[in-house]
């Protein structure tokens, strides 16, 4: 798989926006401190404390409806876009609160990228345009050669370059589902995020594409912190360094039941509910 090696260094796009300090580059640590979430008056998440260490893959596991995705969306301020959604507690990136105005919200979202369940490349853009769309959308300027390098390196990192290098001018949606999802990963990588949130990125994909994306995750995890929601225990085991098990009792908000290195949570869980879940007895 030598062709997947990064051949060109990613141009330091961030440097062109002069205001950004040094700790806005490279994998960043993310800390959730006593996070709670509401939709209207309904509390869906409570007391969530979680450290997502730089350069590590953290998997959020748990049955449906326990608040994993909601939690993930609080991490890059997508939660507040839902009408009536509120939250409490704090979330820090490299120790800086993301909600209280220290960092502009657009910077928060650029530094903490996101890949959702269903691939959603921009329909009105070509493959190449999709990759660099984040630059345009967040107002970063690059030279033409920087841009071309970025397209190639991001697509390579997402393991898509060889498949699409002759189809860069096709519409993004002309690709297959798995390719579209990798295109979305490449798109997120192009703005050089420090954290990448992935909300069940493989659930809509076939096994081959899933494997390809898992490969991508392990390849990029050094340069970007990854938080991934997964329903697939095997996948969580394969890709993650640490795991957090979420659970919500009936009519109660979701909480973290257990949080440990992946190996421990699957082989030696402390809580019986964790053991039941990872062994497939419910959920």
């Amino acid at each position: 798989m030598t062709d997947l090696q990064i051949t060109t260094p990613i141009p330091t796009v961030a440097s062109s926006t002069a205001v950004l300090a040094d700790d806005t580059r490279g994998a960043a640590g993310l800390t959730a401190n006593n996070v709670a979430c509401w939709f209207g008056t309904k509390k869906v998440l409570e007391g969530v404390c979680l450290d997502m260490a730089p350069g590590q893959v953290t998997a959020l596991i748990g049955p449906s409806g326990c608040g994993k995705s909601t939690f993930l969306r609080t991490l890059n301020r997508m939660h507040e876009l839902v009408p009536g959604a509120t939250l409490g507690g704090e979330i820090l990136i490299n120790g800086v609160d993301i909600y209280r105005g220290a960092i502009p919200v657009t910077d928060v979202r650029r530094r903490i990228g996101m890949v959702v369940q269903k691939p959603n490349p921009f329909p009105a853009m070509t493959v190449a345009e999709n990759v660099v769309s984040g630059l345009k959308l967040s107002g970063m300027k690059v030279t033409k050669s920087e841009r071309d390098d970025l397209i190639e390196s991001c697509l390579s990192k997402a393991g898509l370059w060889n498949e699409v290098k002759n189809r860069l001018g096709d519409p993004g949606r002309a690709l297959s589902g798995g390719q579209q999802q990798r295109l979305c990963i490449a798109r997120s990588l192009a703005v050089s995020p420090q954290v990448l949130l992935m909300d069940e990125p493989c659930s809509a994909l076939d096994p081959t594409s899933t494997r390809r994306i898992e490969q991508t995750i392990s390849e990029i995890s050094e340069s970007v912190t990854i938080v991934i929601v997964s329903h697939n225990m095997q996948q969580a085991q394969r890709v993650s360094d640490r795991c957090a098990f979420f659970l919500a009792a009936e009519n109660e908000p979701g909480r973290i039941i257990e949080e440990s290195p992946t190996k421990d949570i699957f082989t030696n869980p402390r809580d019986s509910r964790t053991e039941d879940y990872v062994n497939g007895r419910f959920g």
Partner: peptide, 24 residues
């Protein structure tokens, strides 16, 4: 989902409208 994808990339509201929503 497209609006959210744009915002998640750090897109501003204006650019989300002008470069994603309107072209789509």
């Amino acid at each position: 989902g497209l609006r959210e994808a744009s915002l998640a990339l750090g897109g501003t509201e204006w650019r989300t409208t002008s470069r994603v929503v309107l072209p789509t």
